[in-house]
Design a protein around this nucleic acid. Structure first.
Lengths: 191, 191
DNA sequence: ATTGTATTAGCAACAGGTAATAATACTGGG
DNA sequence: CCCAGTATTATTACCTGTTGCTAATACAAT
């Protein structure tokens, strides 16, 4: 019965820290109405670091995560590119792209990869997508590596017609046709 | 001349902390080859808090920011919804969505808003986009409020045909037609 | 040389801990 | 009922990165 109480308290402790990771040992002790030392022992046997360490790792992890989110602007990694002709990019499907844990990736990520690649291969300082035709062939799941291949199939004036196909290691997953407008000296209107 | 050196050092200090916010006063002192006390005085007159405070606020800010990023998964804010029939969502174009400062928003954000809304109005636990036809009518710029309106125009079995139109305060900016598959008891294959 | 600002030094104290050691409290088994 | 063993609490010394205060220099211009 004494064991049970201890285990229960440690569960509670973890839960509390989940929600308020900024609590000091003192506050935790008050919350659970035990002594500070008990909290310390619990922390040790649960391998929970002290407040300052927790905060530090949170801040550090958040920094890299925010950077990752920032660089998500360029969706996927450009592997190969022949400006105005073709390009290849790779994107890894991360769990937070999926619709629910272990579910399929939300479609707009594949769209974003394809669209970004299509815009990248246009050899112009600025370009805008005009029209797109998209077909999702198979769902893509977490941790898969998606390879997008783009090719300019026609160019008429400042309009580029681009095909993009995305494959995982087995199937073709996604297919899109974009009409992209390069805005070299234009007035920035994708009419 | 002495003033100038002080001012210069304080600028440097701010710059260093920008890049490595985890430096202690001691490390900063070494970096700038002055005494720790000088660093402290500089910090006071620049109103820079101590390391621990900096880290704490970073962690705290990162928490809310990461939550915001998380909820970006649901792109845009759902304003009104009649499941299986129609829906409206609003999204604010933030500067980091644009192709370059003050440029047009990257197309996949509008696509994401539209796609998310289309999936939201399907009254099913899981749904996948099958096919989409997209047309970008006008570019959307930073700080604009985009209103997306979606309507189911036909339903055949588990296939929903959905129109989505996005407007800023003046024009229609984007238009898309989606074919979405609801996966109620299905085997999760968007063939 | 004097004045004034800039810098450096030294010391006590604090928060939020670690680590170690000792003293109690509780609880179940014989 | 007592005793062993675990759980809890208390106490103490020490650590880091500071604040706050006082005092001593350094330096440049007047």
């Amino acid at each position: 019965m004494k064991q049970a109480k201890k285990v229960r308290r440690q569960e509670l402790l973890q839960e509390i820290l989940q929600n308020n990771p900024f609590y000091t040992d003192e506050q935790l002790a008050a919350e659970l109405s035990v002594s500070v030392q008990t909290i310390r022992l619990d922390r040790i046997c649960l391998a929970i670091p002290e407040l300052r360490e927790r905060v530090k790792t949170m801040a550090a992890r958040a920094q890299v995560k925010l950077k990752a989110v920032d660089s998500r602007g360029i969706v996927g990694e450009l592997i190969d590119m022949e400006p105005g002709v073709s390009g290849i990019s790779v994107m890894r499907v991360s769990p937070d792209m999926t619709i629910s844990r272990e579910g399929a990736a939300r479609g707009h990520y594949m769209f974003a990869q394809a669209n970004t690649l299509a815009l990248a291969i246009i050899d112009a300082p600025a370009a805008l997508t005009g029209v797109a035709n998209i077909k999702y062939l198979k769902p893509a799941y977490s941790e898969e590596r998606l390879v997008a291949k783009a090719r300019v199939i026609r160019q008429r004036g400042n309009k580029y017609f681009i095909w993009v196909k995305i494959r995982n290691d087995k199937y073709e997953v996604f297919r899109a046709k974009f009409i992209v407008l390069s805005l070299v000296g234009g007035e920035g209107n994708a009419k």
